[in-house]
Design a protein around this nucleic acid. Structure first.
Length: 651
DNA sequence: ATAGGGTTAG
């Protein structure tokens, strides 16, 4: 949690008086204490000395606060000109993003340490380009880089994936004779690993005299980053020792590989191993919960964090907003958002997207305006959220306005995803021709996703003419695209072109096109259960199927009629009902209804779009069983309640 | 001033 600016101002507002030397602590967890300690000392009549301000500046910089107030104090005490304070000022200003102030502080005290502070400050602040320029400036100024400089600039190269500069610096390192310094060696290894050059990384690693936990961790992280998680796990298992960072790197590797259930497994192993988790670990774990739709586990994580005293910083807060949004609990996402007194553009983007996909389009747009009012600059992802809000709320003109404002007001070039939002917006509104024109006039080549979006709109509005055209283009680009076949065949069925349906099904059989299997996840008492259509692998499979039969019979008695128009496989008519009735979301819901003692919301996360019949059947279920059901689809949420869905049958 | 792990879309 970062320090409230008001509190910081209050702490620094005391009038300095003379007295014994003021001491401060600068540990990460004691940021607030550092300032409080300083203020207390002043209040008790203490007096700062040459060693007071460096740690204080460090604390302020880590809290994301302006270093200027502390600087003013240092000047007031006549301690602003020393080398210690000077380099700390450079670091604080650089990491806080005030490059000009950092440069001024450096000119006032141009020591080698201050140069290093400039490089590492920019690296810490995430401005890797600035860090690299600072290094170049240092070389130009004739200041000799030390091993500290190398470590800092190499970290910037690694984080910026700048393999070229990394190799150049490597050359200088060799020239300077710093190669044997363990930290430099690790930093070099990390540059290669971060840049995905695992061959060079491996050679460096093998040539190291001592291979510490840091080097091993870089290797694990690098392998996972290039998609070699299996190998990463092999290396991880061979590590002589593993600390918090190593475990987190492994866990994050599974996040990158989209193996979210393994994320939770490895996290459990980490706890058994008695290794303490921190904010970084929790972000990966929360991300996995988000992707799995695992709200119970996500809630448990928050309890775990407070029990373990793990700080909730901005990034954790952002991840939590995303998790609650992706679990369909916008109330909790909003509660986290409101409780965060330190927000960045990710925070705003996450809540805007959350509101948008959960069906709160107007609120998402209001939130965007608030974001602008507090001067947080939106980026291209923010606009995906804003445009998604317009799409899901059917706000065509507003969406176009926002799209135009991207280039006009915010100087952000729309990418294919933004064009996709516009195509979706127009397509859903039935303006198929305009949607097609948008694709034809956009400055980049259409991808399969955007053509799929238009095709879905053609299906929704029964425009077989343009639909065929689009499907043809889509299949040219991606001949095995099962979605194109499904949508096209749905479209033919809808307009009673049965001859075309038959022809298409024949082609599908001949080419051996397989539909991506539908898969639904549901969490029950902290355990995630996965269902695939027609799945019989669940230990309670027998009970689930008989429950499902009972449900369907009940629904039919109440007036539900199965809709088999979206059945893809070529089987006899009576078989088709069986096919739709074992769709993964129905299995998941039947499983949830097996435990009737719990009457909480049923939450299902599905990988594909829901079929017409499932959507209809679930509406009936919420009426008959008086349960609320939330299904997360591949693009939006369906909140079913009392026989109605939040998408207004428009998805 | 000093190495390794973090969030948002498709």
């Amino acid at each position: 949690m970062c320090l409230r600016p008001s509190r910081a101002r209050a702490l620094l507002d005391g009038t300095p008086r003379r007295g014994p030397a003021a001491t401060v602590s600068a540990s990460a967890s004691a940021r607030e204490d550092a300032l409080a300690g300083y203020a207390d000392t002043l209040a008790r009549g203490g007096r700062p000395d040459a060693y007071t301000f460096a740690p204080l500046l460090k604390a302020v910089a880590r809290g994301g606060l302006a270093a200027a107030a502390v600087h003013a104090h240092a000047v007031k005490f006549g301690l602003g000109g020393g080398a210690h304070v000077g380099s700390a000022l450079v670091a604080a200003y650089a990491s806080g993003g005030d490059g000009a102030a950092a440069a001024r502080a450096l000119r006032a005290a141009p020591t080698p340490v201050a140069w290093n502070a400039l490089v590492s400050g920019h690296t810490r602040g995430g401005r890797h380009g600035e860090a690299r320029r600072a290094f170049a400036g240092m070389v130009r100024a004739g200041a000799a880089p030390t091993h500290v400089t190398f470590v800092a600039v190499l970290a910037a190269c690694g984080k910026a994936r700048d393999a070229r500069l990394g190799a150049q610096v490597h050359g200088r390192v060799v020239g300077s004779g710093c190669t044997a310094v363990a930290k430099v060696e690790n930093a070099l290894l990390d540059v290669y690993a971060e840049c995905g050059d695992m061959g060079s990384a491996r050679r460096l690693f093998d040539g190291m005299r001592v291979r510490g936990v840091v080097a091993w961790t870089s290797l694990v992280s690098g392998l996972a980053r290039v998609g070699r998680v299996g190998e990463a796990r092999g290396v991880f298992d061979r590590m002589p020792e593993r600390d918090t960072v190593s475990w987190t790197a492994m866990i994050d590797g599974y996040v990158r590989a989209a193996r979210f259930r393994e994320v939770l497994e490895v996290f459990r192993e980490m706890q058994y191993g008695g290794v303490r988790a921190d904010e970084f670990t929790m972000v990966s774990v929360i991300t996995a919960c988000a992707q799995l739709g695992a709200l119970e586990t996500g809630e448990w994580v928050r309890v775990y964090m407070s029990r373990q005293g793990i700080e909730m910083d901005v990034v954790v807060g952002n991840a939590l907003i995303d998790m609650y949004s992706k679990c369909g609990s916008i109330e909790r996402a909003l509660a986290v958002f409101k409780g965060m007194h330190c927000r960045d553009k990710f925070t705003w983007t996450a809540i805007i997207l959350g509101l948008a996909v959960n069906g709160y389009g107007e609120e998402a747009i209001d939130t965007f305006h608030r974001m602008i009012r507090v001067s947080e600059a939106p980026d291209e992802v923010t606009f995906v959220g804003v445009l998604t809000a317009c799409t899901h709320a059917g706000l065509v003109d507003k969406g176009r306005e926002f799209f135009l404002s991207m280039t006009g007001t915010y100087k952000i070039a729309p990418n294919v995803v933004h064009y996709g939002c516009i195509v979706d917006l127009l397509g859903r509104a039935g303006r198929i021709t305009e949607a097609l024109e948008t694709i034809d006039q956009m400055p980049m080549r259409p991808n399969a996703t955007i053509l799929g979006t238009l095709l879905a709109a053609c299906r929704l509005h029964g425009n077989a003419e343009i639909g065929e055209l689009v499907a043809e283009r889509l299949l040219q680009m991606d001949p095995g695209n099962s979605v194109a076949y499904i949508l096209l065949s749905n479209m033919y069925a809808k307009s009673n072109k049965w001859e075309d349906v038959r022809r298409l099904r024949h082609a599908i059989m001949e080419k051996g096109i397989k539909k991506e299997p539908g898969c639904s996840l549901i969490e029950m008492n902290g355990v995630i259960h996965e269902f695939v259509a027609g799945d019989r692998s669940h230990p309670m499979s027998k009970e689930i199927y008989s429950k499902l039969e009972e449900i369907i019979t009940g629904l039919k008695n109440a007036g539900y009629v199965p809709d088999i128009t979206e059945v893809f496989v070529e089987v006899a008519e009576e078989e088709k009902q069986k096919v739709i009735h074992c769709h993964s979301e129905k299995l998941a819901i039947a499983f949830a209804l097996l435990s009737p003692e719990s009457n909480s919301v049923i939450r299902v996360a599905k990988n594909l779009r829901m079929c017409l019949d499932c959507h209809n059947a679930i509406k009936w279920i919420t009426r008959l069983y008086e349960r609320e059901i939330v299904v997360r689809d591949r693009t939006r949420f369906h909140h079913f309640r009392h026989g109605f869905c939040s998408c207004k049958d428009y998805w």
